[in-house]
Simulated assay, not measured.
Amino acid sequence: MAKPAEDEDTRERLKTSAIRLFSRHGIDGISVRAILNDAGVKNSAGIHYYFRTKDDLIRELVQDALKRTRRARNAALDALEARGTPITVRDVVDTILRVETTGTGDPEQRTDLPIGFGHMRFISVMQLNHRDMFIAAVRSEGDNSFERCIEHIATALPDVPRPVVNRRMIFFFQFAQASLSAREAAFVLDPTGGKLWGDPDALDGLTETLTAALYCDIPD
């Protein structure tokens, strides 16, 4: 019988293999057997033993991703607020992007997925092809850090009506997610990040682009 420590190690290996495979090949393109083989788990009932079903494993991966982002984003927002100076739109945009692209010291960060948390492509796949499951996980987990970001941006844009701010933030997160997913894929393909993402100013450029989109004038 496996010891608790061995159980936890195997469980984490299965989760790491699953998120890596799902990120590269999609959810439907990966079988339970492929996950077991990638994780080096010989027991064919391994997924059932640790997670019950593939869907339960997927839900846990989504919840893990949301938790890591929420903790890191809230910590970064706490630091911004502690400065005691006005928080700009660029401050918030930079915080959102940096949280997903730099190490945060989070003990749950996957060490073999070095591009930030390494989950942005997985989240993109979930939102595109398994949206119902993703939304259910979001509602169950909650994310006050998202609301905090919106509040800070709305405060920094007093002349922009709140419904417009809310709509722009939805577009913002969709664009940011797509961009960061492309960044992850680029680093997986080429450790240097390639011509675009290997540029040390690439993230600053993305920050500037997204900030400008939130500031843009409202047509008459």
Rank of each mutant, 00 (worst) to 15 (best):
T102W: 05
H25V: 02
R52D: 07
T104H: 09
D106E: 02
L14W: 13
E108L: 08
D28E: 15
R33C: 13
I58D: 00
E100P: 02
R33T: 15
A65M: 08
R24P: 04
S44N: 06
R13P: 06
Q63D: 14
L77D: 04
K15R: 15
Q109F: 04
A45F: 10
S17Y: 00
R71F: 13
D94I: 00
G103M: 03
D64K: 06
L36T: 14
I35M: 12
D55I: 13
V32C: 01
D55R: 09
A34V: 11
N37Y: 13
I19R: 14
H25R: 13
L113V: 01
R59M: 08
F51I: 03
D94P: 02
E108Y: 10
T104R: 00
I87R: 05
R52W: 04
T95Y: 01
A72F: 00
T53V: 13
S17I: 02
H48D: 11
T85K: 02
L14R: 13
R98F: 13
Y50T: 08
E100F: 05
I115V: 14
F51M: 07
I58V: 14
V93Q: 07
L57A: 01
I19V: 15
N43I: 12
H48T: 15
I19Q: 10
T104Q: 13
R52V: 15
R98C: 11
V32E: 15
S23H: 00
D112C: 08
S31A: 14
D56V: 00
G84R: 08
S17K: 11
P107D: 10
G29H: 11
G46C: 09
F22Y: 14
R20L: 13
G40A: 12
R20G: 10
I58K: 07
A65F: 03
T85W: 06
I27W: 13
L77H: 06
I27E: 07
D56S: 12
V99L: 11
R73V: 11
T69Q: 12
T95G: 06
R68M: 10
V99F: 11
D91H: 01
D94G: 09
G26I: 10
K42H: 11
I35S: 11
F22G: 02
P86G: 08
R24I: 05
V32L: 11
Y50A: 11
L57S: 01
T104W: 00
R90L: 08
D56G: 06
R68E: 11
T53A: 10
S44H: 03
R110G: 01
H119Q: 10
H25Y: 14
K42W: 04
A72G: 02
N37E: 15
L97Y: 02
E108I: 00
D112R: 05
D64I: 03
I58E: 03
R73Y: 03
K54S: 11
D55K: 08
